[in-house]
């Protein structure tokens, strides 16, 4: 079982059990499969261009190689930022008290590039923090489910279903000005009836 999310609010630590939430767990999932003449599921394989070798599951691996052809083990590698500077690994924040900031402007949540969503089961549902979130206030804290090369940001929100952490990276969004030309990249009346199940 994962460690708790520990949030420090007004000098008091509050524990929450995190459960990752995704669309498949809420609504199920659709996927396409290939079947043979008998209706049994097919498996995918790869054929070399000259047809000489059929590559099936378990026959390949992948990795990084230095210019001299040497295989580079994962534990030799370090984190590098976009200019090639070494980046230290950031530990998981689970089990470690994180300072809660806020309440924050709800609009800030719209400037988050969300990468994951967690339902947070509070140990104490009547705590001051949970009560404040249930009343509509939104907070933020640092959040790393696992150790990584960055510390992510979580916005903490609550609704009738429970408490949630929206985890991701804040984004800087440029303003659109009249003189700037757009360049394409290369590549019924009640909101309660919004149907997400059929998406």
């Amino acid at each position: 079982m994962a460690k708790s999310v520990v949030l420090n609010f007004d000098g008091v630590d509050h524990n929450f059990a995190p459960v990752r939430v995704d669309r498949a767990k809420l609504y199920g999932v659709r996927k396409r499969i290939a079947v043979d003449g008998t209706g049994a599921a097919c498996t995918k394989a790869a054929l070399t261009p000259d047809g000489s070798m059929l590559i099936t599951s378990g026959m390949t691996s992948q990795g990084y190689f230095a210019p001299d052809g040497r295989w580079v083990a994962r534990n030799e590698m370090v984190g590098l930022d976009i200019v090639g500077q070494v980046v230290e690994t950031k530990p998981s924040t689970l089990g470690v008290a994180q300072a809660v900031e806020g309440p924050v402007d709800p609009g800030a949540v719209l400037h988050l590039d969300v990468e994951s969503v967690f339902a947070l089961e509070p140990e104490d549902i009547s705590s001051k923090l949970v009560t404040s979130m249930k009343s509509g206030e939104i907070y933020r804290c640092s959040f790393n489910y696992a150790a990584g090369l960055e510390i992510e940001v979580a916005y903490l929100v609550a609704n009738d279903e429970g408490v949630f952490a929206l985890v991701g990276k804040p984004v800087d969004i440029a303003w659109s000005e009249q003189g700037a030309v757009f360049v394409a990249e290369s590549t019924e009346d009640d909101t309660d009836d919004l149907d997400f199940d059929q998406l």
Partner: peptide
């Protein structure tokens, strides 16, 4: 969001390969 750091070796251009 901003591009995330990547794993690598400082000053060395690594090549990603799939092999048998």
């Amino acid at each position: 969001g901003a591009e995330a750091p990547k794993m690598g070796l400082p000053g060395v251009a690594l090549e990603f390969r799939r092999y048998l």
